[in-house]
């Protein structure tokens, strides 16, 4: 494809990217922090979408990975003096191991079991984090503070977070459009059939959980680096609820949807919650409506508008209409011609 076609197809994305790249030049510090939160939670929501949207299993304890990533980075940087970049391999390995462990424990069961057990595991981890026994390491309810800055200015951090989101976005795109990604969708659509064809369903789900867990862990350690402190709420039920909201509202089963959902939820959290307290109730109503009528999320509206004339059904209709029109007009012309002659 030439440059021009690329631009025609993705002009909206390119415009948004340019706006995002120029944003730190004329925005306040607070806006930058909100934007960074959106980027990081965008990655977290993408990782959740790989699990929920593409693999079709609902984890209600996904914050385990996010919190683990944040705490591993924070602990290694504060207590052992590692640099941020040196902690990332550890985050990846530990999150992958946790993913394997949870997967082996729970993925054998039907999906609803997985949901409930991950919910319980998430609460278990939260209790472990705030327990008196682990207070000297994790700081209990206060969390850990004073993580050394990894870059000098906020603007640099902003570009780092943006680059992180873009990198993860394209990696996730590559993963879900690769043959294993397609297999995941096949398993989601019909587990029994996929099993009969000869796919090892458990292995594929484990892979999805590990990939998703590692991405969430990286988002967590990024969050620790941006905020320069970690809190037990990173691992709490609230974080999991946020990520579910983002993924469902934005649109599961598309990589772009969760990012938009993350932007929506975080902007509402930051700006709306100070105006009226019960914004969560409105979110709940929207959530229920989306689940009932718009399973592809808010991005589904966009796709529907965009593809209105491109769906195969519509094409067929257009073709039939054209054929009918030509036929009818031809007949009319014949009639006229006959009268003429």
């Amino acid at each position: 494809m030439s440059m021009k076609i690329y631009f025609q197809r993705y002009w909206a994305g390119i415009v948004i990217l340019i706006i995002l790249a120029l944003l730190p030049l004329f925005s306040s510090e607070y806006t930058k922090i909100v934007a960074m939160q959106i980027f990081i939670f965008g990655v977290f929501a993408i990782s959740y979408d790989i699990l929920l949207g593409y693999t079709g299993i609902a984890s209600f304890g996904h914050a385990i990975f996010f919190g683990t990533g944040a705490y591993v980075s924070a602990l290694m940087m504060i207590k052992a003096g590692y640099s941020f970049w040196a902690t990332l391999p550890f985050v990846i390995v530990i999150c992958a191991l946790i993913g394997l462990l949870i997967g082996f424990l729970t993925l054998r069961f039907a999906t609803i079991y997985f949901t409930i057990v991950t919910l319980a595991l998430g609460q278990f981890c939260y209790f472990l984090l705030t327990n008196a026994l682990t207070y000297q390491y994790t700081g209990g309810d206060d969390g850990l503070h004073g993580i050394p800055a990894i870059l000098q200015t906020k603007t640099q951090m902003y570009y780092l977070a943006l680059a992180f989101l873009l990198a993860m976005f394209f990696i996730a795109k590559k993963i879900v459009s690769s043959p294993p990604g397609k297999t995941l969708v096949a398993i989601r659509e019909n587990e029994f059939r996929a099993k009969m064809i000869g796919y090892n369903v458990l292995n594929y789900r484990l892979i999805a959980l590990v990939i998703s867990g590692v991405m969430a862990g990286l988002a967590g350690s990024m969050n620790a680096a941006v905020l320069k402190s970690v809190f037990p709420s990173f691992m709490g039920a609230g974080t999991t609820i946020d990520v579910i909201l983002m993924t469902i509202l934005g649109g599961m089963g598309s990589i772009l949807g969760p990012v938009i959902g993350a932007a929506l939820v975080i902007i509402c959290q930051q700006y709306l919650s100070s105006y009226f307290e019960w914004w969560l109730m409105i979110f709940g109503i929207i959530f229920v409506l989306v689940v009932l009528f718009l399973p592809q999320g808010l991005i589904g509206i966009f796709y529907r508008l965009k593809d209105k004339n491109n769906t195969s059904e519509q094409k067929l209709k257009n073709e039939n209409y054209n054929r009918f029109k030509n036929h009818f007009l031809g007949k009319c012309f014949q009639l006229f011609r006959r009268q003429d002659s």
Partner: peptide
């Protein structure tokens, strides 16, 4: 349909019911 959507629907009801209690 997919049982996932029933689960998500009841999950969404949590927000409405809990916030209503607070209200």
């Amino acid at each position: 349909g997919n049982p996932l959507f029933e689960l998500l629907l009841t999950f969404g009801l949590i927000f409405i019911l809990d916030e209503a209690v607070k209200l």
